[in-house]
Structure formats: C-alpha cells, structure tokens
Simulated scan of single mutants.
Amino acid sequence: MGTITVFASVTLDGVMQAPGRPDEDPRGGFTHGGWALPYQDEVAGRFAAEGMSQGGAILFGHRTYDDLMGFWTSTPEPNPFTEALVAADKFVATRRRDIRLDHPNSTALVGEASDTVARLRAERDGGITVLGSGELVRALIAAGLVDDLVLLQHPLVLGTGTKLFDTTPVALELQRSLTTTTGVIIGQYAVR
C-alpha cells in the first residue's frame, strides 16, 4: 500500500491559493497571487530537492496539473524541477471523463477522488505526493487518505483566499521542522 503526502505552501491564516505567480489562480477575485515568491531561499530549495530526489508518484487535481505542468514545461532549461516532474508517474484526480493529459507518464483517475485515490493508494507501493490541489486535499483528508503533511508556513496573513483546511478536524504529530532564512517554517507532520 502507498502513502500519501501533501506538500503545500500556506500563509499563517491557512491560505494556499496561488503562491507561485500573480496570475496563477485569480478565482474568486483573488489578487494576492505570487505571495510566496519573496520568501524563497536556499533552505526551502534544498528541502524541496530532497523530497523530489526520493522519487514516487505525484497526484494532482486537474486544474493544478494543467497549471503546474504547463508552467514548468515551458520554463527555460536547464531546470531540475521540469525533469523530475516530466519523469514522475503523474495521476490526475478529476470528475471530467473528457480530460486530456498532455504530459508523459500521466494517468487520469476519473470519478470521486475519495474512491479513485483510495484504489490508487491500495494498489501502488511507495510514496504519492500531492502538490497544491486544495479541493483534492480537503476531500482526501475528509476520507482519511492522507498519511503526512509537509507545510511551508509563510509569515504572512492575507485574510482572503482559498484555505487548505476546512471544517474537518485533523490531529497531527510533528516529525521534523526547520526554519528558512526568510522565516518560513517547514513542518513535516504525520496524520494521527
């Protein structure tokens, strides 16, 4: 059986929407896109590279898959993230039967995520990392399918935007933490 780890950037008030670029996700009139950019440093980069070097599959919601793969595969080479993303087995949770996946090693999991991801987790050995994908993450947490959370907690409060957590209680046990030079606290948690 596989294990599912969520890897997400969040603000102190739990917002996860559009950390990477100003135009990343303006849904709901969100105007703070790119909020994580000023906090990038070598510590966070090394931590992300460490996780990517462990291999394993990547799981996305379809919007995050389209955005993230589209961005990283159009970024000028050389880029270690592009190579790792393209090479990895990618699974896309979606309700759309007509979804088109344009990148190699990509498989659609069509249906309700709580069902399709539960089957994937049961059938696949090794790690499965969820990148972004807030709606998917909330559904997986509610279904009890998340084993670990890696949260990059940025010292910032936005007051608006899509949040990582909803009303589902989650008990966590801190496994590891480190602080970047820009004040981001990287917490690795096991879900109890």
Rank of each mutant, 00 (worst) to 15 (best):
P26K: 09
L59T: 06
T168Y: 06
D102S: 14
V137E: 01
V10F: 00
G2K: 03
L101G: 07
P155E: 04
Q54N: 13
G2W: 00
A84H: 08
L12V: 07
A143G: 10
G14C: 03
E24H: 06
V15T: 02
A108E: 04
R192H: 14
Y65P: 00
A44W: 05
L174Q: 12
V6M: 09
L145P: 02
S106C: 08
D89K: 11
R138G: 05
I128A: 03
A93M: 05
E83Q: 12
G56D: 03
R176L: 10
P80R: 03
A44P: 00
P80A: 04
Y65T: 02
F71R: 11
Q54D: 07
R121P: 07
P26H: 08
D125W: 02
A171T: 15
H154Q: 06
M52C: 02
P26E: 09
V191Q: 04
E24Q: 12
R21S: 15
R121G: 07
Y65E: 01
A122M: 05
L59E: 02
T167R: 15
T73D: 13
W35R: 02
S74T: 14
D13A: 06
W35L: 11
D41F: 08
D41M: 09
V43G: 01
R46M: 13
A108K: 00
R176Y: 11
D41E: 10
T162D: 03
F7W: 08
G55F: 09
A139L: 02
F47S: 14
G45N: 11
G126Y: 05
